[in-house]
């Protein structure tokens, strides 16, 4: 890896391959992710999206090749990484509050005694504010909804001032309004705090307005492309294993939907667009609604 790569690329995969329990998950991963971007990690179920996150976190060893994160082998720079799991503290039995949980993002991995300074407290508030959950700072995690806990997890990640934020299926349990709000929050975190973001996503429609590119897991190989290259009918059809097409609205918005021409032959999909309604605006909201099921 050259020095130039580490200056412009936050994550660099070089011929990376992973096996789990003797099965090849994916291989020949050679790509780099530009610093400062927002990218989605997409692929069909079982393609190894979460595995890819775990590799970047250094929690899973590679069977081949190397993965550099922030210029060091994966796992070394984890203090500069923020990780937001799919169901943060979903089965919590502790009485911990949102702000106390964020405090763990600051000192949770340090042993010994640490007194919280005024500066620390300000920082915790700052993180809660950027995650959009400052009004619930005193709530217990056990009293919060999944969407609120997720924002606490984002604040907990932000408080350590990460260079890279990794989110595992953050949209999975949110309603449409919640998904849009979260996309806006992530976009602000990216632009204002200069945090590079990677989002594991089943469906990228709600993320399209904020994405710069995508890592896609195709035929057991991970690739990275700028968004304009990913928005390709053939590629996405291959990726999802069902006919899909990319639509551009007159307003310049793009979205992905199943190809209505073949929808009767396509395997069961969570998209369902009534053929009588071909107005793009209707299709877009309809697709979003259905994604949320």
């Amino acid at each position: 890896m050259t020095l130039l790569d580490s200056n412009t690329s936050i994550v660099v995969f070089h011929d990376a391959a992973v096996r789990r329990g003797g099965n090849l998950i994916w291989s020949n991963g050679t790509f780099s992710i530009p610093t400062g971007t927002i990218s989605a990690i997409v692929g069909s179920n079982g393609a190894g999206k979460t595995t890819l996150l775990n590799v970047e976190l250094g929690l899973l060893p590679l069977t081949q090749g190397e993965v550099m994160v922030l210029g060091k082998p994966a796992g070394v720079m984890n203090h500069s990484l923020g990780y937001v799991p799919q169901d943060y503290a979903s089965d919590i039995d502790s009485n911990i509050t949102a702000e106390q949980s964020v405090e763990l993002g600051l000192y949770g991995s340090r042993f010994g005694w640490h007194r919280l300074t005024k500066k620390d407290k300000d920082k915790i508030h700052w993180a809660l504010l950027h995650a959009g959950i400052a009004d619930k700072a005193k709530y217990r995690l056990s009293e919060m909804s999944g969407g609120m806990r997720q924002r606490v997890a984002i604040a907990q990640a932000l408080v350590a001032e990460p260079a890279l934020l990794l989110l595992d299926e953050p949209m999975a349990n949110l309603d449409i309004a919640g998904q849009r709000d979260l996309a806006d929050t992530l976009s602000l975190i990216n632009s204002e705090l200069h945090v590079t973001i990677q989002i594991v996503a089943h469906d990228i429609n709600v993320l399209l307005p904020i994405l710069d590119g995508a890592i896609y897991l195709l035929d057991r190989h991970p690739h990275y492309s700028a968004l304009s290259d990913v928005m390709d009918n053939d590629l996405l059809t291959h990726l999802y294993g069902t006919e899909v097409e990319v639509i551009s609205t007159p307003q310049g918005e793009m979205f992905i939907r199943p190809d209505p021409a073949v929808r009767h032959h396509a395997p069961a999909s969570h998209f369902h667009v009534p053929s009588s309604q071909q107005d793009p605006e209707y299709v877009m909201t309809s697709a979003r609604k259905n994604n949320n099921e």
Partner: peptide
């Protein structure tokens, strides 16, 4: 307990995140 208090609490709240933070 005084020495491991925070890491122990961190892993009790969410093991995955604590692990990702290198604990």
């Amino acid at each position: 307990t005084a020495v491991i208090y925070r890491p122990l609490l961190f892993t009790s709240v969410d093991e995955q995140v604590a692990q990702a933070k290198g604990l």
